[in-house]
Write a protein that binds this DNA or RNA. Structure first.
Length: 527
DNA sequence: GCCGTTTTCGGCCCGACTGTTTTCAGTCG
């Protein structure tokens, strides 16, 4: 990003804040914020643009052009300088305190003469804030907490730390609650380089038990807010985590909303408004009669607005919406392929070191709603064996699920269907499907069905195993290990296979290497 | 202050939660 653009972004941002504090029209303030962001994210250097070029930047009009020109010529913006003179230097910092916006900042300035953080803290500690009309004891306490947190420098954390924390919270909730979907959203999903707070989104029919479980986690230090569908906590490490529970039907709209960025959301909602629609976390609706258009998935919401699905990592209102509208949104790099090839290289090295052992390179693929899997056939052919599994869309009709699974089974490169029913014991029911038809397709195509050994899956379960064995399906008893210690789970998978009367002959991974390779090769001949 | 295929004037995203109020303003994301 050109340096000049960053400088102008910073100045216009400061200008917007100073105007907030002086009580200017909020729409004007927003116009400055929007212009600042547009300029900051613009790929061309302001210094190399003529007037027409500068006016082509979104949210930059004649007034902004004048200020930009003044800055480029003189290195200052005189109106901003004047505004700085008018506003005490410490006032901007007040806005950094959570719960303190421009209105309260003006109030404490006018009533108590507070012009900086230290004075605000002193006033709060002397219980002077509670006497101001419109504020109260609770506001005073909450601001005092906010000041302490702020001065304790609860900084943004690194993205990998945030991811770890989010994963732990999701694991805790998964152990104790029933829900349909769970995901982290916010700046973490956008993978910003640092994360201020973590957003967790859950789809469930009942919010209350999840809110309760969330608020009572061992790592919670403080519950900042707790309502019907939204709870905010602060962890012992000082990390703020927001939880929002939405209906399953609104998952996609909620994910868009909760992922942000805020600026991206505003831009997308403006498109909705122009089309006579209304977009909220509950869905995309007709503005007139409130009838729903899309909400279940992100793809459906974007599509209904005339946009392709925009990757979360690009949702910063840096021109991605305009590019999406124009059909010029690039498909960003997907490092996954490189990582896969890197892994294959490592395996080759290991193979050389252990020549007596044959190392196979496998991969678990995701089965999409329509039964397709990740990657193109050419790339997939580079693996020795492939598992494909369902990880989403658990509520499709029996017809849709059956067709979806059969489509994956008929893929010549797919050798095993992982955890075919998708159930999580005590947490998620199995998907609805015609198991007989799935078995028939597996036999016809030479595809194995998995007996997943994870204690909370055991999928296929025992009676399905027995049915499959009697039909003549080949099984694959797998650990689904995500760590070495999970290898021990194999005993549960074997026991489940035994309970379904499976013999050694029914199980693919009891066979000799050559037989396994033949199993794969036979199916690939049909590719 | 910016913007426009209903507009050059009159709009400007939307809803949850809190606290201080007796129906709503402020803040947040």
């Amino acid at each position: 990003m050109p340096k000049t653009n960053e400088e102008v972004e910073e100045l216009l941002g400061e200008w917007a804040e100073l105007q907030q504090i002086t009580g200017r029209d909020p729409y004007r303030v927003r116009a400055y914020e929007k212009a600042a962001r547009s300029i900051g994210g613009y790929s061309k250097d302001l210094r190399e643009l003529d007037d027409k070029g500068i006016l082509a930047i979104p949210n930059v009009g004649k007034n902004m052009l004048g200020r930009i020109r003044e800055y480029l010529d003189t290195g200052t913006m005189h109106e901003l300088e004047d505004l700085r003179e008018m506003v005490p230097a410490g006032m901007r910092e007040l806005l950094r305190i959570p719960g303190l916006g421009p209105k309260k900042a003006i109030l404490v300035y006018e009533q108590l003469g507070v012009t900086n953080l230290a004075e605000l803290a002193a006033a709060a500690e002397a219980n002077k804030l509670r006497d101001i009309k419109g504020l109260g004891a609770k506001t005073e306490e909450s601001l005092l907490r906010g000041i302490r947190n702020y001065t304790a420098q609860e900084e943004r954390i690194m993205v990998d730390q945030a991811l770890q924390a989010a994963d732990r919270i999701i694991a805790t909730l998964s152990e104790t609650c029933t829900f349909d979907e769970i995901a982290y959203a916010g700046s973490l999903r956008r993978m910003r380089e640092t994360i201020g707070d973590i957003d967790i989104l859950v789809a469930a029919s009942e919010a209350e038990p999840i809110m309760d479980a969330f608020a009572s986690m061992a790592r919670v230090r403080e519950v900042k807010a707790k309502g019907a569908t939204k709870t905010t906590i602060v962890t012992r490490q000082g990390l703020q985590v927001d939880l929002r529970v939405v209906p399953y039907e609104a998952w996609g709209a909620a994910l868009v909303y909760f992922t942000g960025s805020k600026a991206h959301n505003i831009k997308v909602r403006e498109i909705a408004v122009k089309k006579g629609l209304k977009l909220s976390e509950y869905g995309l609706f007709h503005a007139k009669d409130g009838s729903i258009i899309a909400a279940r998935t992100e793809e459906e919401v974007y599509e209904a607005l005339g946009l392709p699905w925009i990757p979360p990592t690009m949702r910063e209102d840096r021109g991605e919406v305009e590019a999406a509208l124009a059909g010029t949104l690039p498909t960003p790099v997907d490092m996954t392929r490189d990582a896969v090839l890197e892994q294959r290289k490592k395996l080759k090295t290991l193979q050389k070191r252990y020549p007596k052992m044959t190392i196979l390179h496998g991969c678990e693929l995701n089965i999409a709603k329509d039964g397709t899997v990740d990657y193109d056939p050419e790339f997939l052919a580079g693996f020795d064996v492939l598992v494909a599994s369902v990880h989403s869309y658990f509520r499709l009709s029996a017809e849709e699920q059956t067709a979806r699974l059969i489509a994956a089974i008929e893929n010549p490169l797919v050798n095993v269907i992982g955890h075919p029913s998708g159930r999580m014991i005590g947490r998620r029911p199995p998907i609805d499907m015609d198991f007989g038809a799935v078995c028939a397709a597996a036999i016809r195509t030479g595809t194995a069905l998995e007996v997943n050994s994870f204690p909370d899956r055991l999928d296929l379960r025992d009676d399905h195993v027995r049915w499959a064995v009697e039909a003549g399906v080949t099984l694959s008893v797998d650990t689904d290990a995500h760590a070495p210690k999970h290898m021990d789970n194999i005993r549960f998978g074997i026991a489940t296979a035994q309970r379904g009367w499976a013999t050694k002959a029914d199980v693919l991974n009891t066979r000799a290497l050559k037989q396994l390779q033949e199993f794969v090769a036979r199916k690939r001949k049909h590719a």
